[in-house]
Computed example of a mutant assay.
Amino acid sequence: MSETNTKSKRLKHKEDLRRKILEVAKELFLKHGYDSISIRKIADKIGISPTTIYLYYQDKSDVIYALHQEGFKMLATQFAVLRNVEEPFERLKAMGKSYIEFAMENRDFYELMFIMREPIEFVNKNYACEWEEGGAAFEALLVTVADCKAKGYFKQADLHAMSLYVWATIHGICSLKLQGHLDHVVNAHFPEKEQQLSLEKAFDTLVLNLKSIQ
């Protein structure tokens, strides 16, 4: 076997193990809570020594931050394809739908990115106010809202406040859905024919409100 092939196999083994560490850690963090899980418990679940994990990550906060980054890379990929939507309000709508789709299809990552406090605590401790991956996602929203304002939408609204309002509202809808609160209220108080469309109707109502903002 050539030296090149041997090196390639080693790199693949390292990458496969890195992904396995993250996959198992994600499962354990979400099932048992961050504080209940140690590097040793992650290692035991995989069948490796804790020392092996330390070759890849400094500690468990480094592990959860790596998961946090993975999730934002996935979200950024979904947002990237929307850059070609020229009409800014349509792009804003598409971003909202894409965000909801991401949350519903990647519930574990969404919880790590936006609900669990540990990843953002790691960011605050190690990177001060810099939040590269989350900042890029919010920057995409800022640019789109700025483009909307240039086309006559949200004329009297502050750019940053409007962007925060859009994100916070959609995040609230997603969080309520993921935690079961939205379905509980809908099932208890909505007519039966409207129960299956609660998430879509909430988003459509937000879109109507955004259109009416001067």
Rank of each mutant, 00 (worst) to 15 (best):
V85E: 06
V85F: 00
P88A: 07
P88H: 00
F89M: 08
L92I: 00
L92F: 05
K93W: 06
K93G: 03
M95P: 01
G96M: 11
K97S: 13
K97G: 12
K97N: 14
K97M: 12
E105S: 14
N106H: 15
N106Y: 12
R107E: 10
R107G: 07
D108F: 05
L112W: 02
M113S: 07
M113C: 01
M113H: 08
I115E: 01
I115T: 00
M116I: 04
E118Q: 10
I120Q: 12
E121G: 10
F122K: 11
F122T: 11
V123R: 03
N124F: 14
N124G: 11
K125I: 10
K125D: 10
N126M: 06
Y127K: 11
Y127G: 04
E130A: 14
W131E: 15
E132V: 15
G134M: 07
A136W: 11
A136I: 14
A137W: 12
E139D: 15
E139V: 13
L142S: 14
V143W: 14
V143I: 14
T144R: 05
V145N: 06
A146V: 04
D147F: 06
K151V: 05
K151R: 09
G152D: 01
G152S: 00
G152K: 02
Y153S: 01
K155I: 02
D158V: 09
H160S: 15
A161G: 11
M162S: 10
L164F: 07
Y165R: 10
V166G: 01
T169R: 06
I170Y: 07
H171Q: 08
I173V: 06
C174Y: 09
C174S: 08
C174T: 03
S175Q: 10
L176A: 02
K177Q: 08
L178Y: 04
G180T: 00
G180P: 01
L182A: 03
L182V: 00
D183C: 01
V185S: 07
N187W: 02
N187Y: 02
A188D: 06
A188H: 00
H189E: 13
P191G: 03
K193M: 15
E194L: 15
Q195I: 05
Q195W: 05
L197N: 15
L197H: 15
L199C: 09
E200C: 05
K201S: 15
A202F: 09
F203K: 09
D204E: 15
D204A: 13
L206D: 11
L206V: 15
L206A: 08
